[in-house]
Amino acid sequence: MKSGELSVLSIFVCEDNKEQRERITKAIENIVLIEELDMKLALATEKPDDIIDFIKENNGVGLYFLDIDLKATINGIELATKIREYDPRGFIVFVTTHAEMSYLTFIYKVEAMDYIIKDNYRNIKERVHQCILDANKKYSTKSTDLQKIFSIKVDDRIINIEYSKILFFETSSTIHKVIVHAMDRQIEFYGKMKEIEAKLDSGFYRCHKSYIVNKENIKEIDLNNRCIHMVNGERCLISTRMLKGLIE
């Protein structure tokens, strides 16, 4: 998946009760199939760490059905706060017997999409169905309105930068590292210019072996000195060989 493109909406289930987990999982798979939705069940597990490890390694937006009492080192609400670190645009739904704990979703500011009480299976199934439809609708709307995003992995964090805020990418003096110059910050990360160039859209141009520039944020091109002036005053180099392609 290219950075900035929206992938298939992934669905996750974290429920410690095996029977309930299997019933919810089966319901989700049937709903996605019947409604012919562009979604996939990515993971169903009893372990919160499985969810966290998965989203650390995989970019994208998810729909999460979480039990609150997970009988693990963290509960479902704490899991939701960790999910928000890696998937700030994801949809979180709590499925639980603990109606009295709903207020905690506001205290922890996890922005839950819904709070389903485990009273009877038919009600759960109907509510899960509606959550899937609502998430699909909102996600589809975002696909047309959402700014393109470039995602960078730095240590155990995923940092998202809007394309419009990127000025240029520059080869770092540290081997195997690249620096992205954005409007409000600079971030150094492990990467290869060739791979970054392949992920970006046509708004970016490889103007030098050490630079990839965002054409939308160029203020001026100094032909004599082969230098590009960006809108914030920063500068990057352009090689003689690549000059013609940029001007055209």
Rank of each mutant, 00 (worst) to 15 (best):
R235C: 10
Y211R: 04
D114F: 01
M39T: 00
E100F: 10
E100V: 09
K153M: 13
T96E: 04
C207L: 03
P48Q: 13
Y108P: 00
S140Y: 07
E126L: 10
V61H: 10
Y108W: 09
S143R: 15
K125T: 08
E19S: 12
S102V: 12
I52H: 07
I221D: 04
K118M: 07
K109C: 08
I55A: 10
V213P: 02
I55F: 04
D155F: 14
K71C: 11
Y121R: 05
D114P: 02
Y108S: 05
F150D: 01
I228P: 02
A80E: 03
M193W: 03
I247N: 11
T73R: 14
L133S: 05
N217M: 13
H208W: 12
A42Q: 06
I149W: 15
K118E: 00
C227H: 12
I77H: 03
E5R: 08
R185M: 13
F91L: 02
N224E: 13
D222Q: 13
K148M: 11
T97E: 08
G191W: 07
G233D: 11
I187H: 04
Y86F: 15
F94Q: 01
A44V: 06
P88V: 14
E234Q: 12
A135N: 01
E22P: 03
T96M: 06
L167P: 04
H129S: 06
I152L: 10
A72T: 05
Y190F: 12
Y108E: 06
I117H: 06
Q147R: 15
I161Y: 13
K82W: 08
E100H: 10
A27R: 06
L237C: 10
G245W: 14
F91Y: 13
I152T: 09
D16M: 07
S172V: 01
N30I: 01
N123W: 15
K142C: 11
I74R: 00
F168N: 00
A182E: 09
V231D: 14
C207N: 03
L243H: 07
L104W: 13
V180F: 08
Y86K: 13
I196G: 04
R241V: 07
I92L: 04
V231E: 11
Y108L: 06
H208M: 03
A182T: 14
K2T: 01
L133Q: 08
L237E: 11
Q130H: 11
S239M: 12
I161P: 07
L70Y: 05
Y211D: 00
C131R: 03
K138A: 05
K71I: 06
F91D: 04
S7G: 08
D222V: 06
N58W: 09
D155I: 02
E195W: 14
I11W: 03
Y163L: 00
